[in-house]
Write a protein that binds this DNA or RNA. Structure first.
Lengths: 347, 347
DNA sequence: CAGCTTAGCTTAATTGATTAAGCATAATCA
DNA sequence: TGATTATGCTTAATCAATTAAGCTAAGCTG
């Protein structure tokens, strides 16, 4: 068991005080009038022993941990996983580390995780908030912590947010269906009042009403979101109950996956029996037969903005920065599932 | 900015020393002969202020951070993401937190991350090691840290490992092809000497040689693994160069994805032109047309074993536990892509 | 040569918790 | 009555860093 080298070990060997070593290692040699000669000696010796500071001691003293807490819905969700990976990389470049944790979109779990992050003295928070934690977020901000919300936010809170234009994304998808002759267009979403869901629903509804078409919406009960089979059952029933549907927009990637399962089990052919678009693209969508049209979110830009905003907040902390909401565009990636050649509704 | 409450704040208010408070809060009141009355007072007051200990100070004193460092190939890879999520949950139940980071299967990145973990004073390591970091792992162990390797390991090191039976998995897949009449069976893998890759290759080769069939292997250059397009190009060329192939086993999930792309681009029909099996299952494989047969890894069991082994190592640390390798079975999930109805090789 | 400046460090407090050792005071015992 | 034991705490060191304030000796000035 090799003992960790501390600043004191160096100090003893160099026959100086630990303060001197600390100043030198923090580049304050000149400022503190440490001789060039001593500086060299200490630097050389530290390098020779490959000294690495004890971050814990440093954190205790400075009150900074250089750790960022990140709450996502689920780290195994491809959308959150890719954002997490990029954020991790960008943070690393600035010598920050990321703690991720999954909330399962549950307020209680999120609350506990925030507490755990506070215990761990993280310097800032990146959160895709579940419903019902406005108060906890507010408290974090009041206590002077930098907080960035992403993917969804709380309109009542003065936070810094990074989101995509969900309204416009849904609207675009519906326009695309309309342009290709669909009129009976359904929307499958979650019974959730979160902003991203609300905006997607509004985008859909507006696009429909502009053309005097009647919206047809399935809101899968929020409590059933975690059981994939349940979601599929709901969608299957929805499709059976609405046999006139020509096209469906799914509001999230897992709803799309469950939807495709439902469509398969009903033996419907995409796109001629039912055209399909999914919100959130996926590595595999291009490989489906037919390939699935999707609204791609700009994961790289989202991650970059999240980090940029967070660093800005850190700079002003504990004063909260002015509220801001960065809205990024989605891109409709048109593949085969959304364009009908022959209309042929078999239900 | 609400100030964090420390043990000293409580001590001052209660007019006792911080030691008393510490003993009470650590449940050592009886042992240290603190009066019941004082114990109650302190406990009540701590609860009233909702006191939470400063983990950093605690870590500095005890030398334990209750943080586990976890290195995976890429947190956005579905296999690693699902393991990470389960490990995170299980660790949380024992009041441990997980730091993940992605190595991109690169030794230099992994080395830096291990250093960062050491700086953060993590208590233990869960690592899916990239090639070339034997020495670093060895050093970690020599320095008394609990280390668990998973997914792959180094036969030369006395570590605790959790892996699946890669040899048997590949062997089963080939048996399945053989049973359904395929003879010209190819194997697409990475030019990597890592154990999981070596074993999959050996399982394939043995199964072929048992029947006196000639193996036909593509090893995608290790350096090209990060560029998905490159992988696809390699596989396309391989398929063109080996027109007699009836079936292919892909050695990892991303090779399978790239393979499906190559097959699509060559306009081959699965399974009649080419039967396919992928190592590693995926939520989407059942939705492909045809549905993709896959070797599922038992992610829950892997995660459970990883945590169990790690906790065992922690208990014996700094003495290393005896070397052990837990081998878990894979399950062949037979879908449509692996069973040919009409043989019809068009290349 | 007293007084001031400057160089080149050191001292010691601090961060929040843990923990071995110690120290009054009261009660009990021989 | 003096010794012992039990009660109920406190003191102070420690973990590894940071940092304000101070100190000494040499050099310079007038």
């Amino acid at each position: 068991m090799k003992k960790k080298i501390s600043i004191h070990d160096i100090a003893k060997e160099m026959k100086v005080s630990s303060a001197t070593v600390s100043y030198v290692l923090n580049g304050k040699a000149a400022e503190k009038r440490i001789s060039k000669e001593m500086e060299r000696k200490i630097l050389d010796y530290a390098r020779k022993l490959s000294y690495r500071p004890n971050r814990i001691a440093k954190s205790l003293r400075t009150g900074k941990s250089r750790i960022i807490g990140m709450l996502v819905e689920g780290i195994s969700d491809p959308f959150f996983a890719s954002i997490a990976r990029i954020v991790e990389k960008l943070a690393g470049e600035q010598d920050y580390r990321i703690f991720y944790a999954s909330t399962e979109n549950d307020a209680t779990i999120a609350r506990n995780l925030i507490r755990a992050f506070r215990d761990a003295q993280v310097d800032g928070y990146i959160i895709a908030p579940p419903p019902g934690i406005e108060e906890d977020i507010k408290e974090l901000m009041e206590d002077g912590f930098p907080v960035i919300l992403f993917d969804r936010y709380f309109p009542g809170l003065s936070t810094c947010n990074v989101v995509v234009d969900n309204y416009d994304g849904a609207w675009q998808a519906i326009q695309h269906f309309l342009e290709h002759g669909c009129r009976e267009i359904g929307f499958v979403t979650l019974s959730s009042a979160q902003t991203q869901m609300r905006d997607r629903l509004n985008g859909y509804t507006s696009a429909m009403q502009e053309r005097d078409l009647t919206p047809c919406v399935l809101k899968v009960p929020f409590e059933e979101r975690t059981t994939p089979g349940k979601i599929t059952d709901n969608i299957r029933r929805f499709l059976i109950d609405n046999p006139r549907l020509e096209a469906v927009l799914f509001a999230t990637n897992y709803l799309a996956t469950a939807g495709l399962e439902a469509i398969n089990s009903l033996q419907l052919k995409i796109p001629d029996n039912l055209a399909v678009i999914g919100f959130d693209d996926n590595t595999h969508f291009s490989l489906f037969t037919p390939a699935i049209t999707a609204l791609a979110q700009p994961v790289t830009e989202i991650s970059e903005q999240v980090i940029r905003q967070l660093m800005a907040c850190m700079a002003t902390a504990p004063e909260p920065p002015p509220r801001s909401t960065v809205v990024l565009p989605t891109t409709l990636i048109i593949r085969e599932s959304s364009i009908q050649h022959v209309k042929n509704n078999v239900l």
